[in-house]
């Protein structure tokens, strides 16, 4: 455990909780892509199946359980409790365009051709692109609530910090996971445009709105 890994995990946790609180406090999931949230729930479910097969640490187990529970709670709030506020008309990204290539890639490029490994690899690849329905929704409506941008910032920051964590582990522990690093790079790059808007607009007190 190094500082990049820990702050990355906490940033991820912050993102998840910001989103849950935003929906809960405003009693609305307007502007939130339910599709992205379903994909994240799928990411956690397929990645954390090892909760049943191996124990790594109390920290590891607790964080995994929190992530999974929060992911399903978010999906429930969007498609259940606050369904009336869900903006399905703008959440029109075709997820099959992500899922099909990700499944194929996970079957073709993995550490071992075994069910658990393929599911883990699938989750890594899927996570890297799971935010696309959300970014697509923002580009379609041309704006995002400020709290939604904070959510996206922490979510993007998390994988960026993981990149530093992997550099650290490569140098100090001799660890290197090509699949995670490449997917993490892709994931971080997808946030770059958003980071730019966040820094130049949101941090200066302006709402995130895109030119028409």
């Amino acid at each position: 455990m190094n500082i990049f890994r820990l702050t990355g995990d906490l940033s991820h946790l912050a993102a998840i909780i910001i989103l849950l609180l935003k929906i809960w406090k405003t009693r609305s999931c307007a502007g939130i892509s339910g599709k992205s949230q379903i994909l994240f729930a799928l990411v956690f479910t397929t990645r954390y199946l090892d909760l049943f097969s191996s124990f790594i640490s109390l920290y590891n187990t607790v964080m995994k359980v929190i992530y999974i529970m929060c992911a399903y709670a978010t999906v429930y709030l969007i498609y259940g409790k606050f369904k009336a506020t869900y903006d399905g008309n703008h959440d029109t990204f075709r997820v099959e365009f992500l899922l099909i290539p990700v499944v194929l890639l996970a079957v073709l490029i993995n550490h071992a051709f075994a069910p658990m490994e393929i599911l883990w690899t699938f989750s890594i690849y899927l996570e890297s692109v799971a935010i696309l329905p959300q970014l697509f929704m923002i580009s379609k409506t041309g704006e995002a609530e400020t709290i939604t941008t904070h959510y996206l910032f922490f979510l993007g920051l998390y994988r960026t910090l993981y990149l530093f964590n992997w550099i650290w582990r490569f140098y100090f522990e001799g660890f290197f996971d090509l699949i995670a690093v490449v997917a993490g790079l892709v994931q971080t790059i997808l946030y770059c445009d958003f980071f730019y808007l966040y820094i130049t607009k949101v941090l200066k007190g302006k709402k995130l709105s895109l030119p028409a």
């Binding site: 550490h111 582990r169 996971d177 090509l178 995670a180 690093v181």
Partner: peptide
Amino acid sequence: PNGKKMKDEL
């Protein structure tokens, strides 16, 4: 290097 899976990460 093909690398190895970091099983302890989230």
